[in-house]
Design a protein around this nucleic acid. Structure first.
Lengths: 248, 248
DNA sequence: GCAAAAGTGTTCCGACTACACCCATGC
DNA sequence: GCATGGGTGTAGTCGGAACACTTTTGC
């Protein structure tokens, strides 16, 4: 009896077969090309097996002494030079057999992926291509089949993007520092589809909140009246943080 | 010299020093005692080092061939018998040094915790106490200092609970099968604080949606007019799923 | 009858919708 | 001038907030 209890207790230190893991971090990095109104994801070409030569989300395995978030930042900084970015944890995918490296022997090492969600400004970002590596912004609707379960992770990240767009000011992490209200509106339509308020109402609602600062600068893009450039005023927004605020 | 290189290469599925992980799953399990209007968390007393004898979230380490979610269900089923439950992934905590077992040698095994968020019905649940183990429902405002970073995880879970309560029908996962509208209202006030609509408006709004089925049954609790028991009608709710629906 | 709890109704007001209209520019 | 896109105004409507009121029970 007491032996059994012993076994159980000792057991949790291992005999039942604790899995050993390598932990990977995969980033879903979005950006928006304001000029062409396209939502973009950053993809890299895999340089090694498995899935050599196939597109994938930029990722890496976590090293000694490195936190998950550190690893996420490291991948980013290896692939892209960018001033400002938004990063948050997305989801952890960890079923057995999600990675072929573990499939051979089911008692071997497991691979687990902690995914992160990132937003960067297209104009401010510069891709880092060492001579061999493929790296590219892909329009979301042209993403090819990816390595591992990365299509699923990407799907998950896109859902997060759409949700966040509705109730938090992440739009300003992808837009340029200065933007017109139309840029903002276009961003919402390209990401969310057309299912929301028309431009004048969208405009009125946002301006009412007073966290968009009018820079006074005008830009002309071809024909038509020049548009005013606005800047997101984080200070003015601060009190509204955590409030249930809808951007729609 | 070559010894050194060898060592590195041996580590060389991980030239740069990939960390090896054990992956734990920790559950934040909430319930509500409708009778006393208290929000409860399930805690267990640790039976082994580190943190022997200290309260913690119920958790386990992931075994061979077991998915993260499987592991989460396993912990649950070892601690509690319950008919119905809601489970979703919460967050992954993985900084180095979050677990003292890894602190000794910073190049040893890392421990990573994937946390899950669960809701169970208080009345339908039965705690499984083998004679040695401590296991108990703690009112949220009386939770003691917990092992590891579990207070932080709990905090995170509580935030998720509050958010989800506002826009998804998780309340019905913690309430008994049949409940009065007052039960529902009390649940919202105990979890969220008093910051929302008064009872009549709350009531009117929910009934309008028509996913609460009137059972016709009345219950009397002391003085006052007897209350009608309602049941959550998942079928009637289905079309509203994914719609931006506010329960407040 | 009276207190207590459940349940209904009504008025007020702010916010969103839809749409019409004015403004500044390129050509 | 006129086409094009930027920007403003307004009338109608829907829904939530607040609160008064009615109903049904225990004692």
């Amino acid at each position: 009896m007491s032996g059994r209890v012993q076994r159980k207790i000792a057991g949790s230190l291992d005999p039942q077969g604790l899995a050993d893991f390598k932990v990977g971090v995969d980033n879903v990095i979005f950006s928006v090309d304001t000029a062409q109104n396209r939502l973009l994801v950053l993809l890299v070409m895999r340089q090694e097996d498995p899935f050599l030569g196939q597109w994938s989300l930029p990722g890496t395995l976590v090293q000694h002494g490195e936190s998950l978030e550190d690893a996420a930042y490291r991948v980013l900084s290896e692939k892209i030079r960018v001033e400002n970015l938004y990063l948050e944890q997305l989801y952890t995918f960890g079923g057995p057999d999600r990675d072929p490296r573990e499939a051979k022997s089911s008692y071997g090492v497991r691979y687990l992926s902690v995914s992160y969600f990132a937003l960067v400004r297209f104009a401010e970002s510069e891709l880092i291509a060492d001579r061999v590596s493929g790296i590219a912004w892909y329009p979301l609707d042209q993403v090819p089949p990816l390595a591992f379960d990365h299509n699923q992770i990407l799907e998950y990240g896109y859902r997060r993007l759409r949700n966040k767009l509705e109730y938090s000011p992440i739009a300003f992490e992808v837009l340029p520092e200065l933007f017109t209200l139309n840029d903002l509106y276009q961003l919402y339509t390209t990401v969310l589809g057309e299912n929301f308020a028309d431009y004048s109402n969208f405009r009125a609602r946002l301006l009412k909140h007073r966290f968009l600062a009018d820079t006074g600068i005008k830009v002309s893009r071809g024909a038509g009246r020049p548009a005013t450039l606005y800047r997101f005023d984080a200070v003015a927004f601060a009190p509204l943080k955590d409030k249930p605020l809808v951007f729609i």
